[in-house]
């Protein structure tokens, strides 16, 4: 049987060329959003102390190259010292203890209108009956593509 090897090489050449054709990289969003609490109104700052029963406005600036989609705030206790924040400087932690009625705040929010800059502002009253001590406060933000950024701060809840 006659078999022309020429065709085979041509087929391979076509394959190689077709697989290396131009990329559509240009309009792809490959950037994470940013999240920042290190400005004057940003709250809480690392090692902040908050008082039970008081109301605070939790604030952070978020921005993205394309479109912001949603953000969240998570406040949970760090009585077991399971983690630490990602801010400069270390906060002094109380001794470890067993939680009896720790505060858990878990909430998600969406950002409407295709914004690229947004200031998170969540007004929260620290409940009266919760355990005082070391807490962890985490903000996170996701853009429309699915890129996420997080930041977390050590805070202390006092009487």
């Amino acid at each position: 049987m006659e078999f022309s090897t020429k065709y085979f090489y041509i087929a391979i050449l076509i394959l190689v060329v077709s697989s290396c054709t131009t990329d559509e990289n240009a309009d792809k969003d490959e950037q994470k959003p940013t999240i920042d609490i290190n400005y004057d109104e940003g709250f809480p700052q690392a090692c902040s102390q908050v008082v039970r029963g008081e109301t605070y406005s939790f604030k952070a600036m978020v921005s993205d190259n394309a479109e912001l989609a949603s953000y969240s705030l998570d406040i949970h206790h760090n009585f077991d010292h399971h983690t630490h924040d990602d801010q400069d400087g270390e906060c002094s932690l109380d001794p470890k203890k067993t939680p009896t009625n720790p505060w858990i705040f878990i909430e998600n929010y969406s950002i409407e209108g295709g914004l690229t800059n947004y200031e998170i502002g969540i007004s929260l009253t620290i409940p009266h009956n919760i355990d005082t001590g070391d807490y962890h406060c985490s903000f996170s933000v996701i853009d429309e593509t699915g890129w996420q950024s997080r930041t977390s701060v050590d805070i202390k809840i006092i009487e």
Binding site: A69, S70, Y71, S72, L73, D74, I106, E107, N108, S110, S138, S140, I142, D143, E144, T145, G146, W147, Q148
Partner: peptide
């Protein structure tokens, strides 16, 4: 797929 939404933060 990583979506742009949250579930319990």
């Amino acid at each position: 797929n990583p979506t742009s939404n949250y579930y319990e933060t």
